[in-house]
Amino acid sequence: MTEHQIPEVKADFSPEEVGKWGMVIDQDLCTGCQACVAACAMENNVSFVGEEDAGYGRGMHWVRIERFWEGEYPKISTSFQPVMCQQCGHAPCEPVCPVFATMHSEAEHLNMQVYNRCIGTRYCANNCPYQARTFNWYDYERPDPLNNQLNPEVTVRRRGIMEKCTFCIQRIRRAEDAAAAEGREVMDGEADPACAQACPADAIIFGRLDDPESRVSKQVRSGRGVKLLEELGTLPQVTYLKGGAGYDRNG
């Protein structure tokens, strides 16, 4: 006899509370080199849609680099902002899914996307204020050598399914399992997602927000942090740092 359980749609969050895993992106350090985009695509089996579809607006990268020009021509500066799923504590994408394909994980305070449940209504992507979700418009091909680098730990998605950044949950799980096997807590930096690992400028920092001594917690407290579209009340887990000079990188 199966007991039907309705998963919680919203985590019980108050604005003071923070989720377990969080990310900090330092826009002063980001050079817009796209290494995170490439690393993420390789780690998470993101489809290569080809030049034509990417130009049409169907690129499936889970991270995108937003580019901002500041100032007028002679005195112009650029800043870059890698935007991925913000893993909102109060996510607009979650309640609108009719089949619980997008839902909240109470354990990690992350947004989950259950590919096998998705029926492709695309409401979540419409409702995401960060436009962080990508949809499989076709079954995209992987030409010969590329199929050999698929990550066996991540589901390969087919057409008609929504997907998005997972904070590399397979890496979080692996780190948690390793720590549990050794009877310790997960160490800072042990569960880095592909983007943080690949970032040559060390602009992406990932870690536990419930540990006040982790690098990510210290950076969140640094006072330079902003959250994207904070006024919508989505409680994002990604903090963007901007506008400081002469500060200590490690707290």
């Binding site: 039907h4 309640p95 609108v96 899914c97 619980f100």
Partner: peptide
């Protein structure tokens, strides 16, 4: 009732 143990999401406008 299904083997996935899931009802549809009645929070969803759809």
């Amino acid at each position: 009732p299904n083997q996935r143990g899931l009802w549809p999401n009645f929070h969803s406008p759809l």
